[in-house]
Amino acid sequence: MFKSFIQAEVTLCRKIFVRSLNTRSPWDIVTGVCVERLPVVTPPLNEMQKKFMALQSTLEIEKSMKSDHEIRHESDKIQAELLKKESADVDVDAVSKITAQDFEDASNEELAQFKFASIETDADKKGDKTSTERCLQRHLVLVTPIKLGSDTKTLLPQGLLKEGETLRQTAERIVKEQCGPELNVQFLSNAPCGFYKYKYPSEVNGKIGAKVFFYYANYKSGKLNKTKGNWLTRNELQDILPDRYSKSVKEFLIEETY
């Protein structure tokens, strides 16, 4: 009884101690949000995949049975030959109708007329990085200009944790504040997916630096309307972000294989 009471007391004390430490933590807690647009179109096949796909399709044809269309085509040929020989037992009704070849030609013509949308979009042609309609086969990550002290850097959208907020709530607030309410994203977890720490050049309000906790979200719909943000591919991201920062961002992103 006494022992358990003492134990409870000790844990309480420890909690209070930890909390008091927290309030005096020399680090700012910052939430960064990695908004990623997933690829819209499947990535191109590499050499190996192309070769294997060709093999699979030849195997499939070899193992298949003849289709109705092929049988019709064969019977058409026989009829045509009979007609050439002008033999008596030609079925006139069967000959006068559309042959399988005609049907195939018409279908091919229809297919040729249909225009698929191009993978290279207008934004690609113009080199417009602010649109989500670019590089459809790649992952795109949103970066925005962030003011750090006196200079502005291009980073993932980020902001300070406010009193009484959870990190997830901060992340949602940041997206709303910095990207506008029209941008619709889906967060994938309550937990941060990455971490980054940096020191301020000089102490600010008794804080020596900031600890950035990254949250991951998928782009769903809408546009940026407040700040000028860019949607960047992996390579562009590596070029534009500071080295150490880029490393910690890359840590939690899916690697592209092409």
């Binding site: 977890s189 937990a191 941060p192 997916c193 990455g194 971490f195 720490k197 990254f214 939690f252």
Partner: peptide, 9 residues
Amino acid sequence: AQRRALEKL
């Protein structure tokens, strides 16, 4: 990466 972030948190 997530585990490390949670530890830091």
